Amino acid sequence: MNKDNTTYLSIGSNLGNRFLNIQKAIFRLNTDDSVVEKVSAVYENPAIGFQGADFLNACFSVRTNLSAEKLLQLITQIENDFGRERSSDGTYTSRVIDLDILYVSEKVMDTENLVIPHPRMTERNFVLKPLADIAPQFYHPTLKKDTRNLLQECKDESNLTKTTFALHNSRKNLFSQLQFLSIEGNIGAGKTTLTKMIAEEYNAKLVLERFAENPFLPKFYEDQSRFAFPLEMSFLADRYQQFTDDTSQFDLFKNFMVSDYDIFKSLIFAKVTLQKEEFELYKKVFNFMYKEVRKPDIYIYLYQGTERLLENIKKRGRDYEQGITAEYLDKINRGYLDFIKSHPQQTTLLIDLDSLDFVTNRNDYEYILNSIESKLIEVLHSDNF
């Protein structure tokens, strides 16, 4: 789709998680009609014209085929969705998000709802400084001066500090900062399906557990006490070999790796299925292997209640799984939750799927992506939050 207009916008926030607000609002500008291209550094400055917390401010450019009026409607909707409250008398107040259109290409317009170029942009260094990051030579169509000259002439002497926050123009660009994402869950939780969806949409190397060929699995579901130890040892050997092979090197043509299992699941399942003496032996072998494997940047656990899990297992129709009991699934869930609690140093994201259907409902899928997005931003900027 041809996007004819390069539009420059300013964005700011002084309520809540300011950087997260700004980053998520910028992502919302990526639509079928618009693409965010350049983003500036992020600057911090005091509130001007009223008493309030300090702002974070930035500027960014958008290629769009939306008219200025349609773009205004879009950013107003974004502000409303973020919960911005406007004062009834037009005075300045604190805000979760503030979006303003500065330029729409070289157009000049003055309507009831919109004046372009923005009439007060030349009075604010918190607008001109980030704008100079991305458009230093862009000429103001009426003043006939570029951004650098406007900044030099600006009389705003308020304090402006460049922060270490780094904005991304799209979620895909943000996700490319990952190296390794692990998606875990109980039997039937949907971890493999979600892993495949994320890998396809964000160009990630797909690391899938190969378990269907294990000869002990059908036998285990028939006689757990007899086949538990050979099953778990077989799984551990296979997982360790596969996991180290698949995660030892990156694919240069992929942005990151995403896996539908984490090697620690071996210990979780073994603790449920093995006798005490067997488990202690198993644990010694496991600990030796676990030290050597790659750990994920973010560990995601997809939680579903037992009743929903049993429904999913029944739907996918694997004969050897139909004898799985609610008690067994409960133990597995508790094992995963205990693992998460006992590893506070690990960056973990727990997502409750009981009321979600991310396969058929795009909004539910977006909810999951938004959750990963927020967690990743938190990880990348943990020193600043």
Rank of each mutant, 00 (worst) to 15 (best):
N2W: 06
N21F: 05
I22L: 10
F27I: 08
S40I: 01
N45L: 02
P46V: 07
A47Y: 08
G49C: 04
L56P: 01
F60S: 14
R63T: 14
T76W: 00
N80R: 06
D81T: 11
E85G: 02
R86S: 05
S88Q: 10
G90S: 07
T93S: 10
I97M: 09
L99D: 04
E106W: 05
K107F: 13
V108S: 09
D110P: 02
E112L: 12
N113K: 14
L114I: 11
P119S: 02
R120E: 14
D133T: 08
T142Y: 06
D146F: 12
N149G: 06
C154L: 13
D156T: 11
N169Q: 11
S170K: 00
I183V: 13
I183G: 00
A189T: 01
E200L: 14
A204G: 11
R210E: 07
E213R: 00
A228H: 06
R239C: 09
R239V: 08
D246R: 09
M257L: 10
D262L: 03
I263F: 15
S266W: 00
F269E: 01
A270C: 12
Y282M: 02
K291L: 13
R294A: 14
D297M: 03
Y303W: 11
R308Y: 02
L309Q: 01
L310R: 08
L310K: 10
N312D: 12
K315T: 14
G323T: 14
T325A: 12
T325M: 08
A326I: 02
A326F: 05
L329C: 07
L329G: 03
G335F: 13
Y336G: 02
F339K: 02
F339S: 00
P344L: 09
I351D: 02
D354Q: 12
D354N: 15
F358H: 10
R362T: 14
K375V: 07
K375L: 04
K375C: 04
L376P: 01
E378D: 13
